[in-house]
Structure formats: C-alpha cells, structure tokens
C-alpha cells in the first residue's frame, strides 16, 4: 500500500503518469474534464494551439506500437510541442545499449517528457526514478496502460454521461493484458461494475483482490451488459497452449452478428485495437452503430493532449511563479 501512496505523490499533480493504480475518482475526473477542452481544439479548422511551444516530447518505445505512438505524437503536435522518436528496432539497443543509457541519451536531446513503452512490467517506474523528466507510461508488459484506460473512460462518459452503475464486460486475454488491468481500476473507480469474461487459462493466476466478478461464458450475461470491451487475442502467446485454437476461442467468445443481435440496443462495443477480425470481433460488430472503436482512436488524441498539458503546461511554471513572486494580473 505504501508503494501506491508514494507513487501517488508523483502522479499527475506532480510529474508522472505511471498507472491508474493510486488514482481516485476525482483525479480521473480532473483529466476527463480537461479532455473536453482539448477535444474542442481537435474540431477547429486549424486544430493546433501554442500551449507547449518549445517543449519536446520523446516517444521511447522498446516494444512495437503504431497507434499509441502516433496518438501521442499527434497530441504533442496539436499542442505545438516538438517530438523525437526512439525506435528499439532501429537503434543501438540492438548493439547492446542498456535501457538506462538509452533513456539518458534521449533525455540529453532536450526532451521534457518521455513516453515509455516496454515489454517488462515496471519499466516506466524505473525510468521515472532515473531521470528528472516527466514520464508517461504507454504500456509496461502485462502491468498498466493508463492513457488507454483514460480514453476508454472518456469514450464511455461521452456516450453515456457517466459510468455510474454501468455493467461492463472485459472479454478475452485478461492474463496478458495491461489494458485490462488499467481499465478494471479506472472503470470501477468511476463507479462501473466490471465482469471479466475469459477461459480460466486466460485469467491471471492471482485475481482474488480485484474488484470484479468472473465469468467463463459470454452468452448468459450478454443481454445484461451496458458495454462489451473486447481484448485482442495476442496470437503470439497461443503457442503456450492456453487455448486449443483461435477457431475454438471464436466459437465461444467472438462478438458475432448473432451475439450482437442479443445485445441491448443501447449497449456499446469497445476494442483497444488492433482488432483480429473473426477472432474476438466480427467485421459486422466492428462496423455496427453500437461500436465506438473509432471514437476511441479520436478520443485518444484528446486525452493524451490533456495528460501532456497537465504534466508540461501547468505544474512546473506554477511552481516557478510561487518562487519568483511577481506576476501581475494580466488582462
């Protein structure tokens, strides 16, 4: 518990966004409220403001990503920040450079904030301990992916007004999913009820403390759900023999047109992407009016603008004012 408390002091109000763990409802709502401001900028003829002019956001991805990186870079550009990108595949990492050296090199290019992704849980926390810069966790192994959870909450809130009392099923590979972990914390903090739906082999070994209910079958609960959150089946893990075959998984859990028809008319379908059509979601479900998958992508940029602005645009200079003193009323 003390870890969470310590981390809390470093979270958004301070310098980092490392996870949803340790944030309460008011912390989340502060970010979601601010996101409205940035969503409006995205709808302008010229969707750009000078708020972070002169700041540099570095994306440091030790693990592959298309949309998360593009989303962070789009968010930074809309705030007029510069971006530098580090790609594990094409870097000196393949020559044996350590994570710590890599981070120090990226920092010395003048970055003000690091967006970090790595296949090992806890990497963003380690990086935050090594550097004075702000760190945003863009996914660490099977641990957390906080900006994904924030954009999912924002998408649900945009459609429903509030998550209070919503019954949300998270379906699929919970075991390997950082998205599931962050979303369980965020959805429940925002007042929703979460059901995890997966074969026993795709649930984490120690799930006792999670504020969720478990179901091994999707069909019996489908008609009661306000939202279905489908996770990508990470085909790269199938070799472990956790499920017999993709075909058999799809038989029980794929959101087919038949299952879609049994869902409530006002239910929502979410997916963090990339989707495997025919495995966890059918093309028909993805294209259905209840699917908000594209909203999630659009909202991802707005939420990340809010996060970057909170970390770079407000805190530090506010501190400087307190120290320096002389700020006139400035009409």
């Amino acid at each position: 518990m003390s870890v969470a408390t310590d981390r809390r002091t470093d979270d958004l109000r301070g310098r980092h966004l490392l996870g949803i763990d340790g944030m309460d409802r008011s912390d989340l709502e502060e970010i979601l409220d601010l996101t409205d401001t940035f969503a409006e900028i995205g709808r302008r003829p010229i969707p750009k403001v000078p708020a972070l002019r002169g700041r540099t956001v570095a994306t440091v991805f030790f693990e592959g990503s298309t949309r998360t990186r593009m989303s962070f870079e789009a968010a930074a550009r809309r705030l007029s920040a510069d971006t530098v990108a580090f790609n594990a595949g094409t870097s000196s990492l393949s020559k044996g450079e350590s994570i710590r050296d890599t981070v120090e090199v990226v920092a010395s290019y003048g970055a003000d904030l690091l967006v970090v992704r790595h296949s090992m849980a806890g990497t963003a926390h380690r990086v935050a301990g090594w550097t004075d810069l702000s760190v945003v966790n863009a996914g660490d192994g099977c641990h957390e992916h906080p900006t994904q959870a924030l954009l999912d909450c924002y998408t649900l809130r945009e459609r429903r007004g509030s998550l209070d009392g919503m019954r949300i099923a998270i379906v699929g590979d919970i075991r390997h999913s950082r998205v599931a972990r962050s979303n369980v914390l965020a959805f429940t903090a925002m007042g929703a009820e979460v059901v995890l739906v997966a074969p026993a082999t795709l649930l984490p070994p120690a799930i006792g403390g999670w504020p969720v209910t478990i179901a091994h079958e999707l069909d019996p609960i489908l008609a009661d759900l306000d939202a279905v959150y489908l996770l990508r089946i990470q085909s790269e893990r199938i070799t472990e023999g956790l499920i017999p075959s993709l075909r058999e998984y799809a038989l029980d859990f794929c959101l087919t047109p038949a299952r879609l028809a049994r869902m409530r008319a006002d239910a929502l379908v979410l997916h963090p992407g990339p989707t495997n059509r025919g495995v966890e979601i059918s093309a028909e479900a993805a294209a259905d009016g209840r699917s908000v998958i594209l909203d999630q992508v659009v909202n991802g940029v707005s939420v990340r603008m809010a996060v970057l602005f909170l970390l770079l645009g407000s805190g530090r200079q506010l501190g400087a004012v307190d120290a320096g003193g002389s700020v006139e009323g400035d009409r």
Partner: peptide
C-alpha cells in the same frame, strides 16, 4: 488560455 504567453500562470 492555451494561446497565452504566460501559460501555466493562469488555470485552464
């Protein structure tokens, strides 16, 4: 607020 030259001095 996001266009100001003293951004951060005033709340958004």
């Amino acid at each position: 607020a996001l266009h100001r030259d003293d951004i951060g001095l005033r709340p958004v």
